[in-house]
Design a protein around this nucleic acid. Structure first.
Length: 614
RNA sequence: GGUCCCGUAGCUCAGCUGGAUAGAGCAACUGACUUCUAAUCAGUAGGUCACAGGUUCGAAUCCUGUCGGGAUCACCA
């Protein structure tokens, strides 16, 4: 039992003994004491006023006396209004520090025997990764690390959208206009190379469309189908999809390529494989630079036919129903989700059907208890429906499904739009942030004596820390504004600020040399700065648990920042190597050591590495 | 129009199951470096928690409504 449980338990017993009233220990409202008052933890006594029939401050006094008499670890208390502030003995905290120093990895929970699958990234294969993918990948990666720290076994997967009209556009453009070019011949990273042809297709298509708009046929369509008060520009903007499907020569070619692909045409498949392999090679580099990896990739080309059988089975037991045209639907009105199509009238699968099949496939592959899908919030409705269907199908993992929904990333200038060229490329962004770190480091000259290779490694760690922390500190649910200028900031609430705390500790430890931590036991009276740190260290496992339960890495981000901040203050206020006594010196070094280890582990959960110098 | 998400300092964001005088960072201003390396610390200033009701001893937090922003409501993925 840790001190929090002991206090809650004690309060419950005290309320029973003093006021003859039963309460659940876990319902006792216990929080950290605010800085301006003395105390480590605060019990809110308002809830007991009814049972006790006394004023809050009287209850506080009585309960405070009871607790300090019955709980050895509590040494003092004070009451302010309805708040009972409790002071835990320094002995308890110094013992706690000794205790975590013995642990192999403080914060890492025991295995809980459960397996969770986390799906993230899941890009289309027609163009390179961008800032939106980065948020997805960082969220997915850090969530998976946090789940591991919370005791889960984790399987990292993605579903690669390697088929469909988008990749056909890249393929067609390369075939028509590429003249046999390769990434090597053009000197481009291979995923960017494929993206180049996707953009080229869109350009050619736009030219074609513009010409058509002025043509006799285009003008005729406009005259016939325009809505009232709709001008020509607005009409043709809205008409683009229809044009692509019904009039466009390029559209026709792309569509027939898709049909050939589905028919298994050899030449088309070969081209498709060639283009996709280029993309994968490029993605691999980006993933490696980001420091993430996957256990298994699912490809849509293998899964897009799945789920149909399940739907047909479900048709027999009336989970689904068939319309006259042969299409199959599910009625989710009682779950406020309307009716949803699951098989087309020609019997083929739709997105939803695939996802049903893929979920089942994954369960067969790994037998997981939970599945987490990291997908942007524009698909909230889709996942609500998917989860409801899987529940009605009685899938064993249905209660463990979670959509980690995150908001889109905006730029200060507004939304990212590929058509307007405002999309921030993932590779470019990483390069920029490293460049900024290089310039910063150059100005300081603190690592100039190190070998070039080591300098580069440090600079990479700092740059990526700035970028990653900037993104991962924001609550996933919220839409976020990504200001490139702020993302390379290295002062204040940033990744490098946190790294700097770690680096400072490494520097002091290097100077300290051999330390006999046993001497720390002679240090018995804690300074406020020291206690502040210990209390935060004590909180670490809870933070991890909470972040895992909420699927929210930003909790860990905030925690690491606060811990680093407390360290910087401690470092400023109290000497370590020149401490007043040997015991104080050793104790502070031990405290710093544990803090550094905790910071390193916490930041690792966010996918951020610590340099030893900076 | 139906449904869902968001709205906190000039800007970017915290604020745990309702708890004390709503907190950080950036930007602005002031101070602290022959130091355990200042990517740091200390301080000043900055708020009608979108708005209006309601529940409660107590509401940024829960409920209802209004306004503003976004998403979604395809035999697309």
């Amino acid at each position: 039992m840790n001190i929090l449980d002991i206090i809650q338990d004690g309060v419950a017993k005290g309320v029973k003994e003093l006021y003859d009233h039963d309460i659940d220990p876990s319902s006792v409202n216990l929080s950290g004491t605010r800085k301006e008052f003395e105390g480590d933890y605060t019990v809110v006594v308002f809830p007991f006023t009814k049972a006790a029939k006394k004023k809050p401050d009287v209850i506080g006094e009585e309960l405070g006396n009871y607790l300090t008499q019955n709980i050895g670890q509590l040494v003092r208390f004070n009451v302010i209004k309805g708040f009972l502030n409790l002071v835990v003995s320094d002995d308890y905290w110094t013992d706690f520090l000794q205790d975590i120093a013995q642990q192999e990895q403080y914060g890492q929970h025991q295995p809980n025997g459960k397996k969770v699958m986390v799906e993230f990234s899941s890009p289309n294969t027609n163009k390179p990764l961008h800032l939106g993918h980065i948020r997805n990948i960082l969220l997915g990666w850090s969530t998976s690390r946090i789940l591991e720290a919370a005791g889960y076994e984790v399987v990292r997967v993605q579903i690669v959208n390697d088929r469909g009209i988008a990749i056909c556009k890249s393929m067609l453009a390369w075939q028509k206009f590429g003249e046999g070019a390769t990434p090597e011949s053009m000197g481009k990273k291979s995923d960017h190379f494929v993206g180049h042809f996707y953009v080229l297709f869109e350009q050619k298509f736009k030219e074609e469309y513009t010409a058509w708009q002025a043509s006799e046929e285009g003008q005729k369509v406009f005259a016939e189908k325009q809505k009232k008060d709709q001008d020509q520009t607005a009409f043709f903007k809205a008409y683009k999809n229809t044009y692509f499907n019904e009039y466009s020569a390029l559209g026709q070619e792309a569509k027939s390529m898709l049909l050939q692909w589905e028919a298994g045409d050899e030449a088309t498949i070969a081209l498709w494989k060639k283009m996709n392999n280029w993309v994968y090679q490029g993605f691999d580099v980006t993933y490696q630079n980001l420091g993430v990896h996957f256990d298994k990739l699912y490809y849509e080309s293998n899964t897009y036919l799945l789920g149909k059988e399940t739907v047909l089975n479900g048709l027999e037991n009336s989970t689904f129903y068939k319309k006259e045209d042969g299409s199959v639907w599910i009625d989710l009105e009682d779950a406020k989700l309307d009716h949803k199509l699951v098989l087309r009238s020609d019997g083929t699968s739709v997105y939803m059907t695939q996802d049903i099949g893929t979920a089942q496939l994954r369960y067969q592959d790994y037998g997981v208890d939970k599945m987490v899908y990291v997908v942007a919030d524009e698909q909230d409705y889709h996942f609500k429906v998917l989860f409801e269907i899987l529940k009605r199908l009685g899938e064993p993992y249905a209660d463990g499904l979670h959509h980690l929904s995150y908001g889109m990333v905006d730029l200060p200038s507004g939304k990212m739009k590929s058509r307007e060229g405002t999309v921030v490329d993932a590779d470019d962004l990483m390069a920029e942030v490293k460049e900024e770190a290089r310039m910063n480091s150059g100005e300081r000259g603190t690592i100039i004596d190190l070998p070039k290779e080591e300098q580069d490694d440090i600079i990479r760690k700092i740059g990526l820390a700035a970028l990653k922390y900037f993104i991962v500190r924001v609550n996933p649910q919220k839409r976020m504004t990504f200001d490139p200028k702020e993302s390379v900031d290295m002062q204040g609430q940033t990744g490098p600020y946190i790294q700097n705390a770690f680096v400072r500790i490494q520097s002091v430890l290097r100077k300290a040399g051999e330390i006999d931590f046993a001497k720390a036991k002679d240090y018995t009276t804690l300074q406020p700065q020291e206690k502040d740190i210990i209390l935060q260290l004590f909180d670490f496992p809870n933070i991890i648990e909470q972040a895992a339960n909420d699927y929210d890495p930003s909790h860990v981000g905030a925690y690491c920042y606060n811990l680093a901040k407390s360290f910087h203050k401690f470092y400023h206020d109290l000497p370590m190597l020149k401490a007043e006594t040997e015991a104080a010196k050793v104790f502070r070094l031990m405290l710093s050591t544990q803090l550094a280890k905790t910071l390193q582990f916490g930041m690792d959960l966010l996918g951020i590495e610590m340099p030893h110098k900076m």
